[in-house]
Design a protein around this nucleic acid. Structure first.
Lengths: 139, 139
DNA sequence: AGCAGATTGGTACTTTCGTATGAGTACAAT
DNA sequence: ATTGTACTCATACGAAAGTACCAATCTGCT
């Protein structure tokens, strides 16, 4: 935020400087008027480019990583169930997930079944899909 | 492409018009110089905004729907195998895919196995992942 | 202390998935 | 005509996934 303020302040100062400079140039000789105007045009053209690029960067960085905690709670997914869901989405088998989380395969099966019930799906492929649709897993 | 040329032509004409207008104004009275420069600045600021917005739109529309036919061939995936992969990625079971494509479940199993071999994966969840990484399926 | 929910794990069973193998058909290229 | 590739389908087996119970433990909260 401080950065933004600084940038805008710099821009305003630059604008004023350009105006003063142009006045000065005009007084000395009228021939360079086109150059002044062209310079102003170019500078503000790039300012426009820059501002828009900033905006789009912040927009994309906001829309992409929406792993939305609220919906996880709304669905009644527990912490552990969500962990299992994450591993599931990475393509691990139940046995592998069991190893990764240091519990038995039975436990993972229980969690997985609960996840299916809460997401209202029948298969793990559907669970992954739905979880991504609901933005509780990154795409 | 014609549209782009037209837009740029319009811009150049506008620039020249502004310069002439400013000359004319200067001759009539020097007091309005700041306004001229401010007008030029504003116009080109918005031109910059516009150009960049166009660029980003085309960029996002290009990067998103890259279902890349070349890589499908490179992997040696046949037409039918790719069809099966698509249904698979939508969360269907082998039996469901068999119904959708009007063949037996055995056939689907064969295709699915071949897809796994060609994608070098062990499970359908991994196949979906890999296919999306390789951009042969939409995200 | 006592309750609710979360976590863990087990048994038993069914279903789905995945692999291996063989084989018939169709179609295009050589 | 032969070869190769794609597509189809079957059988059989083993591995994973999924369901339906039940139960012990743990945790946070009142």
């Amino acid at each position: 935020m401080k950065k933004t303020v600084f940038i805008f302040a710099t821009l305003i100062i630059a604008l004023l400087a350009l105006i003063q400079l142009s006045k000065f140039s005009i007084v000395k000789g009228k021939s360079s008027l086109e150059y002044i105007i062209a310079a102003v045009a170019i500078v503000f053209f790039f300012v426009g480019l820059y501002i828009n690029k900033r905006k789009n960067q912040s927009k994309t960085s906001l829309t992409k990583p929406n792993i939305d905690t609220q919906k996880i709670e709304d669905l009644g997914l527990s912490k552990r169930e969500y962990e299992v869901l994450c591993k599931l989405a990475k393509g691990h088998s139940n046995k592998e997930i069991a190893s990764l989380l240091f519990v038995s395969e039975s436990t993972i099966k229980t969690h997985v079944s609960n996840v299916y019930t809460k997401l209202n799906v029948k298969r793990r492929t559907q669970a992954i899909q739905k979880a991504k649709e609901l933005r509780i897993l990154p795409h």
